[in-house]
């Protein structure tokens, strides 16, 4: 589903001494089927923005559209329920929200609430645990007897069982070990492609933004700071540092190579092996010329 923000502002506790403007005049469009990363330091407005995507928050001014659903300041949206069926949100540390007696009941909770038929729910549970890599043997266990990594996968399965068209991910890999992080992100990326989802990822990891996203939005103090493709964004080292963000390590290292050795090797999404081949050739090339 296409997502559009049109001059969206959001103010917490307006008119009180605690008034705080969390989003300021934000406009952007995300095409259906894109994988978008939203980055920015803590307090930049990422979480506030994210909560507009499924109508948990309504703009103080401006308009948010997600597919056919509009949320406009001052107007009541009667189709929030439909919107929430289409937009799946994986919040930070989603395993803290598990509550049912068994894994399968926990996964079924969302679709049951939206009146999905029993047989269809069973199919969805099977698909969801397959996607998240949970063994079906765990379905009748209590989610609280599982490891942290497994609990995270149960919580994510619950969101997937809603069959969302838009997937919103708020730092989905925080606290996982390196292989757990890779597995979860690869899984979301595969689902994104297979089911042609529109995916919005909030992340602190520039590496993940570079690896998975096709579009990046940077927020700073509630305002849109930059947007563009990962390669466009990560060329702007100084602009990123000005808002306390880093460039991904591969780009940083190549910049140092250029500075120190005058070897220019632009990053264009090459794998580490491809980069190494080019770099080795150029390093040796220097020797051959002399």
């Amino acid at each position: 589903m296409d997502i559009t923000f049109d001059q969206v502002s959001y103010v917490y506790q307006p008119g009180s001494p605690f008034e705080h403007r969390a989003l300021q005049d934000i406009s952007f469009s995300i095409q259906s089927g894109s994988f978008v990363a939203i980055i920015g330091h803590t307090g930049s407005g990422k979480s506030t923005l994210l909560q507009h995507l499924n109508g948990l928050m309504q703009p103080t001014s401006g308009r948010v559209s997600v597919g056919p659903y509009d949320m406009e300041a001052g107007k009541k949206n009667k189709r929030l329920r439909e919107l929430r069926e289409k937009v799946g949100v994986v919040f930070q540390y989603p395993e803290h929200q598990l509550f049912e007696e068994t894994v399968s009941k926990d996964i079924a909770f969302g679709p049951e609430n939206f009146g999905v038929e029993e047989q269809e729910i069973q199919t969805r549970i099977t698909e969801a645990v397959r996607a998240t890599g949970l063994s079906e043997e765990l379905l009748e266990r209590s989610p609280f007897d599982l490891s942290g990594g497994q609990m995270r996968r149960v919580a994510i399965s619950g969101v997937l069982a809603m069959n969302p068209e838009v997937l919103v991910l708020d730092e989905p890999t925080a606290g996982l070990d390196p292989s757990g992080q890779r597995e979860i992100m690869d899984m979301f990326h595969n689902l994104h492609k297979e089911k042609q989802l529109t995916t919005v990822l909030v992340t602190h990891s520039m590496e993940d933004a570079l690896k998975y996203a096709d579009h990046i939005i940077i927020l700073n103090n509630g305002e849109m700071y930059r947007e563009g493709t990962p390669l466009e964004i990560f060329k702007q080292k100084e602009a990123l540092e000005a808002v306390q963000l880093d460039v991904p390590e591969v780009i940083e290292f190549l910049a140092k190579v250029e500075e120190k050795m005058n070897i220019r090797l632009p990053y264009e999404g090459q794998s580490v092996a491809e980069l190494a081949k080019d770099l080795a050739r150029m390093v040796k090339g220097g020797r051959d010329l002399e």
Binding site: V250, A273, K277, A280, V283
Partner: peptide, 11 residues
């Protein structure tokens, strides 16, 4: 990882 691949590439 990069060092490893550089060695694979003959450095």
């Amino acid at each position: 990882k990069l060092a490893d691949e550089l060695m694979n590439a003959g450095l």
